[in-house]
Protein backbone atom coordinates (compact mmCIF):
# COMPACT_ATOMS: atom_id res chain seq x y z
CA UNK A 1 0.00 0.00 0.00
CA UNK A 2 1.46 3.35 -0.98
CA UNK A 3 1.94 6.20 1.47
CA UNK A 4 -0.55 8.36 -0.41
CA UNK A 5 -3.30 5.72 -0.18
CA UNK A 6 -2.71 5.34 3.52
CA UNK A 7 -2.77 9.10 4.07
CA UNK A 8 -6.07 9.47 2.27
CA UNK A 9 -7.39 6.61 4.41
CA UNK A 10 -6.41 8.51 7.56
CA UNK A 11 -8.07 11.69 6.31
CA UNK A 12 -11.25 9.95 5.19
CA UNK A 13 -11.62 7.44 7.98
CA UNK A 14 -10.72 9.29 11.16
CA UNK A 15 -12.09 12.66 12.25
CA UNK A 16 -9.69 15.19 13.75
CA UNK A 17 -10.63 15.54 17.43
CA UNK A 18 -9.32 18.13 19.81
CA UNK A 19 -5.89 17.14 21.00
CA UNK A 20 -5.15 17.01 24.69
CA UNK A 21 -1.98 17.38 26.73
CA UNK A 22 -1.79 13.60 27.03
CA UNK A 23 -1.75 13.23 23.22
CA UNK A 24 1.29 15.51 23.01
CA UNK A 25 2.90 13.51 25.79
CA UNK A 26 2.25 10.28 23.84
CA UNK A 27 3.85 11.95 20.81
CA UNK A 28 7.11 12.09 22.80
CA UNK A 29 7.23 8.26 23.11
CA UNK A 30 7.33 8.24 26.95
CA UNK A 31 8.58 4.64 27.22
CA UNK A 32 11.58 5.33 24.97
CA UNK A 33 12.10 8.61 26.82
CA UNK A 34 12.29 6.80 30.18
CA UNK A 35 14.99 4.45 28.84
CA UNK A 36 16.91 7.45 27.47
CA UNK A 37 16.69 9.26 30.83
CA UNK A 38 17.90 6.13 32.64
CA UNK A 39 20.92 5.46 30.37
CA UNK A 40 21.85 9.16 30.35
CA UNK A 41 21.68 9.17 34.16
CA UNK A 42 24.05 6.19 34.26
CA UNK A 43 26.46 8.08 31.96
CA UNK A 44 26.33 11.07 34.31
CA UNK A 45 26.81 9.07 37.51
CA UNK A 46 29.60 6.90 36.05
CA UNK A 47 31.51 9.90 34.71
CA UNK A 48 34.46 11.20 36.75
CA UNK A 49 33.97 14.65 38.25
CA UNK A 50 30.83 16.33 39.48
CA UNK A 51 28.00 18.52 38.29
CA UNK A 52 25.83 20.77 40.46
CA UNK A 53 22.55 18.90 41.19
CA UNK A 54 20.48 21.69 39.61
CA UNK A 55 22.57 21.56 36.41
CA UNK A 56 22.38 17.74 36.47
CA UNK A 57 18.56 17.90 36.59
CA UNK A 58 18.58 20.46 33.76
CA UNK A 59 20.88 18.18 31.72
CA UNK A 60 18.59 15.17 32.24
CA UNK A 61 15.51 17.26 31.43
CA UNK A 62 17.12 18.53 28.21
CA UNK A 63 18.12 15.01 27.16
CA UNK A 64 14.58 13.75 27.92
CA UNK A 65 12.98 16.58 25.94
CA UNK A 66 15.44 16.00 23.09
CA UNK A 67 14.43 12.32 23.03
CA UNK A 68 10.77 13.38 23.08
CA UNK A 69 11.41 15.71 20.14
CA UNK A 70 12.93 12.81 18.18
CA UNK A 71 9.84 10.72 18.96
CA UNK A 72 7.47 13.48 17.83
CA UNK A 73 9.39 14.04 14.57
CA UNK A 74 9.50 10.27 13.99
CA UNK A 75 5.71 10.03 14.43
CA UNK A 76 5.22 13.01 12.12
CA UNK A 77 7.22 11.37 9.33
CA UNK A 78 5.86 7.85 9.86
CA UNK A 79 2.16 8.68 10.26
CA UNK A 80 1.35 6.74 7.07
CA UNK A 81 3.02 3.48 8.14
CA UNK A 82 1.91 3.84 11.78
CA UNK A 83 -1.70 3.73 10.56
CA UNK A 84 -1.33 0.26 9.00
CA UNK A 85 0.70 -1.37 11.77
CA UNK A 86 -1.19 -3.00 14.63
CA UNK A 87 1.49 -1.95 17.14
CA UNK A 88 1.35 1.74 16.21
CA UNK A 89 -2.19 2.33 14.90
CA UNK A 90 -3.30 3.86 18.22
CA UNK A 91 -0.68 6.65 18.12
CA UNK A 92 -2.04 10.23 18.24
CA UNK A 93 -1.62 11.08 14.53
CA UNK A 94 -3.22 7.93 13.01
CA UNK A 95 -6.08 8.33 15.50
CA UNK A 96 -6.62 11.89 14.34
CA UNK A 97 -5.93 13.42 17.75
CA UNK A 98 -3.00 15.54 16.51
CA UNK A 99 -2.42 16.82 12.99
CA UNK A 100 0.87 16.19 11.19
CA UNK A 101 1.63 19.95 11.15
CA UNK A 102 1.14 20.17 14.93
CA UNK A 103 3.48 17.21 15.47
CA UNK A 104 6.12 18.75 13.20
CA UNK A 105 6.00 22.16 14.95
CA UNK A 106 6.01 20.53 18.38
CA UNK A 107 9.01 18.34 17.49
CA UNK A 108 11.07 21.14 15.95
CA UNK A 109 10.47 23.53 18.87
CA UNK A 110 11.39 20.86 21.43
CA UNK A 111 14.48 19.77 19.47
CA UNK A 112 15.88 23.28 19.12
CA UNK A 113 14.91 24.21 22.69
CA UNK A 114 16.49 21.12 24.28
CA UNK A 115 19.80 21.49 22.40
CA UNK A 116 20.08 25.23 23.16
CA UNK A 117 19.20 24.71 26.83
CA UNK A 118 21.75 21.91 27.27
CA UNK A 119 24.41 23.84 25.33
CA UNK A 120 23.96 27.18 27.08
CA UNK A 121 23.33 25.95 30.63
CA UNK A 122 25.55 22.84 30.81
CA UNK A 123 28.14 22.65 28.03
CA UNK A 124 28.29 22.69 24.25
CA UNK A 125 29.90 19.24 23.81
CA UNK A 126 26.81 17.72 25.44
CA UNK A 127 24.58 20.08 23.42
CA UNK A 128 26.28 19.07 20.16
CA UNK A 129 25.98 15.36 21.00
CA UNK A 130 22.27 15.81 21.76
CA UNK A 131 21.83 17.58 18.40
CA UNK A 132 23.68 14.69 16.73
CA UNK A 133 21.39 12.18 18.49
CA UNK A 134 18.21 13.93 17.36
CA UNK A 135 19.58 14.47 13.82
CA UNK A 136 20.71 10.85 13.54
CA UNK A 137 17.35 9.49 14.67
CA UNK A 138 15.24 11.79 12.49
CA UNK A 139 17.31 12.17 9.30
CA UNK A 140 19.51 9.06 9.15
CA UNK A 141 17.19 6.45 10.70
CA UNK A 142 13.62 7.67 10.18
CA UNK A 143 13.88 9.47 6.84
CA UNK A 144 16.72 7.60 5.14
CA UNK A 145 17.34 4.07 6.38
CA UNK A 146 14.09 2.73 7.82
CA UNK A 147 12.19 2.33 4.54
CA UNK A 148 15.23 1.48 2.42
CA UNK A 149 17.44 -1.17 4.00
CA UNK A 150 17.20 -4.16 6.36
CA UNK A 151 20.27 -2.68 8.08
CA UNK A 152 18.01 0.18 9.27
CA UNK A 153 18.13 -0.70 12.95
CA UNK A 154 21.83 -1.67 12.91
CA UNK A 155 22.98 1.79 11.79
CA UNK A 156 19.98 3.64 13.20
CA UNK A 157 20.60 2.00 16.56
CA UNK A 158 23.37 4.53 17.10
CA UNK A 159 20.71 7.14 17.86
CA UNK A 160 19.48 5.16 20.85
CA UNK A 161 23.05 4.53 21.98
CA UNK A 162 24.09 8.17 22.26
CA UNK A 163 22.26 9.20 25.51
CA UNK A 164 24.86 7.79 27.99
CA UNK A 165 27.53 9.63 25.97
CA UNK A 166 25.51 12.84 26.26
CA UNK A 167 25.17 12.30 30.01
CA UNK A 168 28.90 11.60 30.33
CA UNK A 169 29.73 14.73 28.29
CA UNK A 170 27.40 16.83 30.47
CA UNK A 171 29.67 16.06 33.45
CA UNK A 172 33.11 15.86 31.84
CA UNK A 173 32.71 18.18 28.85
CA UNK A 174 34.17 15.49 26.58
CA UNK A 175 34.08 11.99 25.12
CA UNK A 176 36.24 9.16 26.43
CA UNK A 177 36.74 5.41 26.01
CA UNK A 178 34.33 4.67 28.87
CA UNK A 179 31.49 6.61 27.28
CA UNK A 180 32.23 4.97 23.92
CA UNK A 181 31.95 1.54 25.60
CA UNK A 182 28.52 2.51 27.02
CA UNK A 183 27.54 3.60 23.52
CA UNK A 184 28.75 0.30 22.02
CA UNK A 185 26.78 -1.83 24.51
CA UNK A 186 23.47 -0.22 23.43
CA UNK A 187 24.57 -0.21 19.79
CA UNK A 188 25.21 -4.00 19.84
CA UNK A 189 22.04 -4.62 21.88
CA UNK A 190 19.71 -2.96 19.37
CA UNK A 191 19.85 -5.52 16.48
CA UNK A 192 19.01 -8.70 18.47
CA UNK A 193 16.38 -6.75 20.44
CA UNK A 194 14.52 -5.44 17.37
CA UNK A 195 15.05 -8.52 15.20
CA UNK A 196 13.51 -10.69 17.93
CA UNK A 197 10.48 -8.36 17.81
CA UNK A 198 10.49 -8.37 14.00
CA UNK A 199 10.44 -12.19 13.93
CA UNK A 200 7.01 -12.38 15.55
CA UNK A 201 5.74 -9.13 14.05
CA UNK A 202 7.05 -9.67 10.51
CA UNK A 203 3.57 -9.60 8.91
CA UNK A 204 2.97 -6.19 10.47
CA UNK A 205 6.22 -4.85 9.01
CA UNK A 206 5.52 -6.50 5.65
CA UNK A 207 2.08 -4.86 5.44
CA UNK A 208 3.64 -1.45 6.17
CA UNK A 209 6.37 -2.04 3.56
CA UNK A 210 9.25 -1.74 6.02
CA UNK A 211 12.24 -3.84 4.90
CA UNK A 212 12.99 -5.44 8.26
CA UNK A 213 15.42 -8.36 8.06
CA UNK A 214 12.79 -11.17 8.38
CA UNK A 215 10.74 -9.55 5.58
CA UNK A 216 13.68 -9.09 3.19
CA UNK A 217 16.12 -11.91 4.03
CA UNK A 218 13.81 -14.41 5.72
CA UNK A 219 13.53 -15.85 9.22
CA UNK A 220 16.56 -18.17 8.92
CA UNK A 221 18.96 -15.32 8.06
CA UNK A 222 17.45 -13.18 10.87
CA UNK A 223 18.06 -15.98 13.38
CA UNK A 224 21.68 -16.28 12.21
CA UNK A 225 22.18 -12.50 12.56
CA UNK A 226 20.61 -12.56 16.05
CA UNK A 227 23.21 -15.15 17.11
CA UNK A 228 26.11 -13.10 15.65
CA UNK A 229 25.01 -9.84 17.27
CA UNK A 230 24.22 -11.56 20.58
CA UNK A 231 27.80 -12.87 20.76
CA UNK A 232 29.13 -9.40 19.90
CA UNK A 233 26.82 -7.86 22.52
CA UNK A 234 27.90 -10.20 25.33
CA UNK A 235 31.57 -9.61 24.47
CA UNK A 236 31.07 -5.83 24.39
CA UNK A 237 29.13 -5.92 27.66
CA UNK A 238 32.18 -7.43 29.37
CA UNK A 239 34.39 -4.49 28.31
CA UNK A 240 33.52 -2.22 31.30
CA UNK A 241 35.24 -4.76 33.59
CA UNK A 242 38.53 -4.45 31.67
CA UNK A 243 38.61 -0.65 31.57
CA UNK A 244 37.65 -0.15 35.21
CA UNK A 245 34.16 1.13 34.49
CA UNK A 246 32.45 -1.92 36.03
CA UNK A 247 33.32 -3.68 39.29
CA UNK A 248 32.91 -7.23 40.62
CA UNK A 249 29.11 -7.06 40.78
CA UNK A 250 28.99 -5.88 37.20
CA UNK A 251 31.34 -8.70 36.13
CA UNK A 252 29.10 -11.34 37.76
CA UNK A 253 25.80 -9.87 36.51
CA UNK A 254 27.03 -9.31 32.94
CA UNK A 255 28.44 -12.86 32.78
CA UNK A 256 25.30 -14.58 34.15
CA UNK A 257 22.81 -12.49 32.18
CA UNK A 258 25.02 -12.70 29.08
CA UNK A 259 24.90 -16.51 29.30
CA UNK A 260 21.08 -16.38 29.56
CA UNK A 261 20.95 -13.99 26.58
CA UNK A 262 23.04 -16.38 24.46
CA UNK A 263 20.92 -19.35 25.55
CA UNK A 264 17.71 -17.55 24.54
CA UNK A 265 19.29 -16.49 21.22
CA UNK A 266 20.23 -20.15 20.59
CA UNK A 267 16.65 -21.20 21.32
CA UNK A 268 15.41 -18.64 18.80
CA UNK A 269 17.83 -20.19 16.29
CA UNK A 270 16.73 -23.76 17.00
CA UNK A 271 12.94 -23.41 17.45
CA UNK A 272 11.76 -22.42 13.99
CA UNK A 273 8.22 -23.69 13.57
CA UNK A 274 4.76 -23.07 14.91
CA UNK A 275 3.66 -20.94 17.83
CA UNK A 276 6.75 -21.92 19.81
CA UNK A 277 8.98 -19.96 17.43
CA UNK A 278 7.00 -16.78 18.14
CA UNK A 279 7.07 -17.54 21.86
CA UNK A 280 10.87 -17.91 22.07
CA UNK A 281 11.38 -14.76 19.95
CA UNK A 282 9.11 -12.87 22.36
CA UNK A 283 11.05 -14.29 25.32
CA UNK A 284 14.32 -12.99 23.85
CA UNK A 285 12.74 -9.60 23.11
CA UNK A 286 11.46 -9.20 26.68
CA UNK A 287 14.65 -10.54 28.26
CA UNK A 288 16.76 -8.15 26.18
CA UNK A 289 14.98 -5.21 27.87
CA UNK A 290 15.68 -6.67 31.31
CA UNK A 291 19.29 -7.41 30.30
CA UNK A 292 20.09 -3.84 29.25
CA UNK A 293 18.29 -2.39 32.24
CA UNK A 294 20.16 -4.71 34.65
CA UNK A 295 23.61 -3.92 33.18
CA UNK A 296 23.07 -0.17 33.44
CA UNK A 297 21.40 -0.44 36.86
CA UNK A 298 24.43 -2.31 38.24
CA UNK A 299 26.79 0.32 36.82
CA UNK A 300 24.60 3.02 38.37
CA UNK A 301 24.60 1.24 41.72
CA UNK A 302 28.36 0.64 41.77
CA UNK A 303 29.24 4.24 40.92
CA UNK A 304 26.61 5.77 43.21
CA UNK A 305 27.90 3.61 46.08
CA UNK A 306 31.52 4.56 45.35
CA UNK A 307 30.57 8.28 45.33
CA UNK A 308 28.62 7.88 48.57
CA UNK A 309 31.54 6.13 50.34
CA UNK A 310 34.01 8.75 49.08
Amino acid sequence: MSGMQVNSRIEAGTPVFESSLSDFFQLMKPRVMSLVIFTALVGMVAAPGSLHPVLAVIALLSIAVGAGASGALNMWFEADIDAVMQRTAARPIPRGRITEDEALSFGVVLAVGSVLTLGVLVNWVAGALLALTIGFYVFIYTMWLKRRTPQNIVIGGAAGAFPPMVGWAAVTGGVSIESIVLFLIIFMWTPPHFWALALYRSRDYERAGIPMLPVVAGDAETRKQIIIYSVLLVATASAPVFIGLGGVTYAVVSTVLGAVFLWLALRVWRVRDGRDSDRVAKQLFLFSILYLFALFAVLLGEHALAAWIA
Binding site: H52, V54, L55, I58, G113, T117, V120, L121
Partner: peptide
Protein backbone atom coordinates in the same frame (compact mmCIF):
# COMPACT_ATOMS: atom_id res chain seq x y z
CA UNK B 1 9.27 27.85 33.01
CA UNK B 2 12.25 28.59 30.73
CA UNK B 3 12.74 32.04 32.30
CA UNK B 4 12.82 30.51 35.80
CA UNK B 5 15.08 27.68 34.60
CA UNK B 6 17.63 30.02 33.01
CA UNK B 7 17.53 32.36 36.03
CA UNK B 8 18.18 29.54 38.52
CA UNK B 9 20.89 27.96 36.33
CA UNK B 10 22.63 31.33 35.97
CA UNK B 11 22.68 31.83 39.75
CA UNK B 12 24.03 28.27 40.20
CA UNK B 13 26.76 28.80 37.59
Amino acid sequence: FLVVLFYVATIVR
